[in-house]
Amino acid sequence: MSNFGRVRRILGRHGWGPFVFIVLVPALIWIIVLRYLPIAYLASLSVQTGAAGNSAYVGLANYQAAAADAVFRKAVFNTGEYMILLLAIQIPLALLIAVGIDSIKNRTARDTVLTLYFMPLVTSTVASAVVFVFLYHPAYGLFNFILGSVGLPTLAYLQNPTTALPAVALMEGWKTLGFPVIILLAGLQTIPPELYDAAGVDGAGPWHRLRYVTLPLLRPTLILVLVMQGLETLRMFTPVFAMTGTGSRTPGGPVNSTIVWSLDIFFQAFQNNRFGYAAALAMLMFIVVAGAMVLQLSVARRRSM
């Protein structure tokens, strides 16, 4: 008992009172068991044949197989394509919308417009995805009805390997547009209006104000939005699964034209039961995310110094 008392006294001297102890120890156990341990487990799975008792150590064979796997390469390539489509179109568009909303003086009008752009963000992705599947219907969908009534050729959207990926990306872009808009709007509001007045005195037009005042001051916010949306699109599981897997179709189709990294992990692990191989694919995703985070941190640190 006296030992216990001594430990308590030493802990208490370093700030570890009962309150800190009771709050922090369960949380630490949680984060170790449900976040750190799984990563270690994943790493060990990725160098084995499978998860069962008869699993054997295979070294880096799973990684070598991944590098040679045409479907996995397609999945990584598609993930990049979704990311580029979304970041290169959605973020500039969101910036324009944010600048536009910021310039509305009437409070009610401003709130209403913002709400309109924000609405899809609060809705369920799966529910939105099946609505878009209907909108995209080649014969009875709204999109083809509109195209047809203005005399444009109609499209097969999700049924055509060329248009399927952009069609999924469009729904994701619509669904998440409100997020960059709101974050960029918050960033815009931190720019002091005197800077615009000063630029106006110097004779800067709207384009020059955007280029030389807004963009440089908004840079940290833009980077944050790019990183957060980039991470979101790296996952990109739900829209692909819900939009391309209707009926008897395999999600990720037609002919793997919409398959993504996370969907490939899902197939390999939970449908083909190739846990070792799927673990290697997941480990590669972990390495990409960790690398991106380290890069972003070091860039941010260098800038702040």
Binding site: H14, G15, R35, L231, F237, A282, M293
Partner: peptide, 29 residues
Amino acid sequence: FAGRDLIFVAFLATMALPFEVLAIPLLLM
């Protein structure tokens, strides 16, 4: 308290982890 920043960083480091990465070991667990 001693070690606060270190523990906070250990929490923060898991923030960007995609759930898809954890799913396989979590299912086995």
